[in-house]
């Protein structure tokens, strides 16, 4: 495996933007791809804001922040990922969309390029299937907010080569992340717990047991969690939670993983969380979490 210098990230949503920051901060050249120019523009704005706050808080020097920003570019043309040594996809949780993306990338990227999927629920083996380089596809699931959380769940598919997995693992460590090896099973470890837990929270609210603020206060004060589940759901995006549910329920058929009716109603009403300014709570700014 050749050395990784240039990193492609597909999807300029919350997760993709965060992953791009992690890679740029570690000194890699980063190309962020999205089909929507407005998403790229928002990601650029948030990335600048994040690095600015990192300098204010003394976590980066101005020079380091400027270098990371200079190494970051964005594009709405997939062909611009042609020189990447690794491409991490962070598009929405849909098997066919991810498979199609990797199929297109296989035609664009050189043989050396590793494809990594940030999927949190889907099978790495199924995503890789038919892409033309099944041995060079690996699961690389970052945690929200990616720019702050160190953990990466790394999963080999059935056809992933040992060299690919080792190279991706080393790249992950080089970015300052903490990889943990998990099996290619639904939800790996985190979402196996988190998706149904968050659904239980939504059902509890829907049943009138408690208000979102009371639930979050209970979780934080009672268990010492840094973030309440409603706050976290707003950060994840309620539409993303629906997609997670659909993907996860489709594989597990666990009733706790099915999207609760309240979640569907909130998404239908445009209450998507932080990204739309309203979810379980209301927001008046779109700055990226942390810094």
């Amino acid at each position: 495996m050749s050395e990784i210098r240039t990193v492609g990230v597909c999807g300029a949503g919350t997760m993709g933007s965060g992953i791009a920051i992690v890679a740029a901060r570690a000194g890699y050249r980063v190309v962020l791809y999205d089909t929507h120019e407005e998403s790229l523009e928002r990601a650029r704005r948030q990335t600048e804001g994040f690095f600015g706050k990192s300098v204010e808080r003394g976590k980066l020097t101005r020079e380091q922040a400027d270098a990371a920003l200079a190494a970051s570019s964005s594009t709405s043309f997939l062909a611009d990922l042609a020189e990447c040594d690794i491409v991490i996809e962070a598009v929405f949780e849909n098997l066919e969309v991810k498979r199609a993306l990797f199929g297109q990338l296989d035609e664009i990227c050189p043989d050396r390029t590793i494809f990594a999927s940030n999927t949190s629920t889907l099978s790495i083996t199924e995503i890789a299937s038919g892409c033309g380089r099944e041995d060079r596809v690996v699961g690389m699931h970052f945690c929200l907010p990616a720019q702050l959380m160190k953990l990466v769940e790394m999963s080999p598919g059935l056809n992933t080569s040992e060299d690919t997995f080792k190279a991706a693992w080393a790249f992950c460590e080089a970015m300052g992340q903490r990889p943990v090896k998990t099996k290619d099973t639904p939800g790996f470890v985190l979402n196996y717990f988190l998706v149904p837990f968050n659904n239980d929270v939504i059902r509890l609210i829907e049943a009138g047991v408690a208000e979102p603020a009371d639930v979050d206060r209970a979780i934080k004060a009672g268990l010492g969690y840094k973030m309440g589940p409603c706050e976290l759901l707003d950060l994840i995006g309620l539409d993303t939670q629906v997609l997670l549910c659909e993907a996860f329920y489709g594989v597990t058929h666990d009733p706790r993983c099915a999207a609760p009716p309240l979640l569907k109603r909130m998404v239908a009403a445009g209450h998507l969380g932080r990204k739309s300014g309203r979810g379980f709570f209301t927001y008046d700014r779109d700055a990226m979490y942390g810094g």
Binding site: A210, D214, A221, L223, P229
Partner: peptide
């Protein structure tokens, strides 16, 4: 945290399945 009168209230109801 205020809650309605359900077994497990908020926390036990949420965390025990986990």
């Amino acid at each position: 945290s205020v809650c309605s009168d359900f077994a497990g209230r908020i926390l036990d109801r949420l965390i025990r399945p986990y």
